[in-house]
Write a protein that binds this DNA or RNA. Structure first.
Lengths: 342, 342
DNA sequence: TTGTAGGCGTTATCAG
DNA sequence: CTGATAACGCCTACAA
């Protein structure tokens, strides 16, 4: 049944290909009657336009892409939904593309831009350490949404929206201090990993110091790199090890809720209790944090607002209504039952 | 800087386009020297081939797609990873595409097949109620992986791999009966929804009857359709309502772990205890089920095996090593601390 | 080993 | 309003 093309449809209808094209694309200059006739033939013969050919020829595509690193992260689920809604509202279509941990998001973006004639990109998650030269290759608007960035940041290149990881991390650790904890452990990424984990770790350090607590490296624990990072499994293993080390501490700050839950379970399985024996705090404000038992004290990131802002900014830039901007949202300290006054 | 094409590269190198093409595609008939020279120019000028043009021309693509309905479902996360690995091992590439709840997966598949010249498809999740006529349009091998299907099933069309939802549902409800529960509630999809929920509900009914328990419709609760289904939120709300109804029951079977966790939290928030006051059972065997406190009794679906089987079968069919097949995996009853003998 | 030319299925630009 | 026809960027015979 050799795949049917626009030519076949044209022949079947006794019209030219351009007329068929007009019918498919809701072009105004076309007789309603011929249009309905064409659409009928299309339906009957199950004609489906070839997107590759379309993309090849088309110049403006009304399509943006979301490149997401860590697609299994539940933190992104709601974001995707919001981004999708907001995009649809603007009559654009939306392509979700996952990028693997070791892949270079810029390379993928470059490829996609060519292939799909994208108008804009939202990067979700991951960590940006690309050279300006590399970034400047990407000549369409893009915004970095909750992606980690190091050092210098040129506002000309792209927008950025996220919470201030340092500040929020500081906030929750400061809270732990204020309710009396002095021996506060942290479960973070490995310290030579220049990621979001490093920033949160720095917030932790600063909070301790400002509360006159000398950081103790024996309480600084890194996720295992032979287990997927930012998972409950990882949190569990690290916490188990910490408990078995016999180190003295009364609270632990896990840099994500998943890790916090893994850590909590390790404590419970050791026959101890949260928060009676150990207070546990997380980060992100996932649904599961509040559903867990005990509910995890955490920093809620305003995902909806963040996602909305990302889309708004992106389209403002696309439509040249505004320049790129840096948009930092406040997180909210959610006090659950996993932490207690000491 | 008008996007650079293969022609430009050819000109820059002083060779023909076919030579450049050969270089890019690792074609054998090419002088190593000219090849390295070409690759150098490509790197220097950041040339990126246009995939649309490639797909348009190409006939066989060594690419499969995974169409996934409910991408935020953590149940699929591990599957995706496994599928990806297995696909890579076979030197194929792999395209992940999410389909929205209301979208028709077959239409999307058809489109993708044309656009990308796919060799095979794995459908993940969702529910198939398409006519044979529609299905037969999809003329490449595909396998349904943990997707619900109704009634008749023609094995010629495609493969199917999943657990037996009826049997597994029966298994866990039977377990509840065997440990002494007689008033067992269920939280499922709405009963006129012909989905996987219906099948699990039927398993529940059968288990009750086989244990000489008369089903009580007052204990059959449906998820709210104004809240996203299969979520903790939904489980929470439904359970809260059930508790407040004053209905007498000692156990509840939630047809997914997320729902079970929401339900558990509702019980806890009502000042009751799991499992002392109410036993709670789930379905799926998500990580969080075992990490929850108390660990949720559930049916663990062997996700790795399921995903592996899906890929294996798909490639067997692609390579014509085998016909389509129906592959049913056993689930495993995982007994947590959320259920107790009565 | 390399270059030339035709075509993949559409859309866009023209004339009619 | 409609129909040829030239791109779009690449691959692949076919020729050299």
């Amino acid at each position: 049944m050799g795949t049917i093309t626009i030519k076949d449809v044209a022949k079947l209808c006794g019209v030219g290909v351009s007329t068929v094209s007009r019918a498919i694309n809701n072009h105004p200059d076309i007789n309603e009657e011929t249009k309905t006739k064409i659409m009928k033939v299309i339906k009957e013969n199950n004609y489906i336009p070839n997107n590759s050919a379309r993309n090849l020829k088309r110049s403006n595509s009304k399509m943006i892409a979301v490149l997401i690193k860590g697609i299994s992260n539940p933190f992104f689920s709601k974001m995707i939904k919001v981004i999708e809604e907001e995009t649809q509202e603007r009559k654009y279509s939306f392509l979700l593309h996952r990028v693997e941990e070791r892949e270079d998001e810029i390379d993928i973006a470059l490829e996609l831009v060519k292939e799909k004639k994208l108008r804009g990109i939202i990067f979700l998650g991951g960590y940006f350490t690309h050279s300006e030269e590399k970034l400047s290759q990407l000549d369409i608007p893009y915004v970095l949404c909750t992606v980690g960035i190091t050092g210098k940041w040129s506002k000309e290149l792209c927008s950025f929206v996220a919470v201030d990881d340092f500040k929020e991390s500081y906030k929750i650790v400061d809270y732990l201090c204020k309710i009396g904890h002095k021996r506060i452990a942290i479960i973070t990424t490995s310290l030579d990993d220049t990621s979001i984990g490093l920033i949160r770790y720095k917030g932790y350090l600063q909070a301790l110091r400002d509360n006159n607590i000398e950081p103790d490296m024996k309480l600084v624990r890194s996720m295992k790199d032979d287990i997927e990072t930012f998972t409950m499994d990882n949190g569990y293993v690290v916490m188990k090890e910490l408990l078995e080390s016999g180190e003295d501490f009364t609270a632990v700050f896990a840099i994500s809720d998943s890790i916090a839950i893994g850590a909590s379970k390790a404590i419970l399985n050791a026959g101890k209790s949260v928060p009676e024996d150990y207070s546990v705090a997380g980060f992100d404000g996932l649904d599961i944090a509040s559903y867990y038992n005990p509910a995890i004290t955490t920093i809620r990131q305003p995902v909806d607002e963040i996602a909305k802002a990302a889309v708004t900014i992106l389209f403002d830039v696309i439509k040249k209504k505004a320049d790129h901007q840096m948009c930092v949202f406040p997180g909210e300290l959610i006090i659950g039952q996993s932490t207690k006054l000491i």
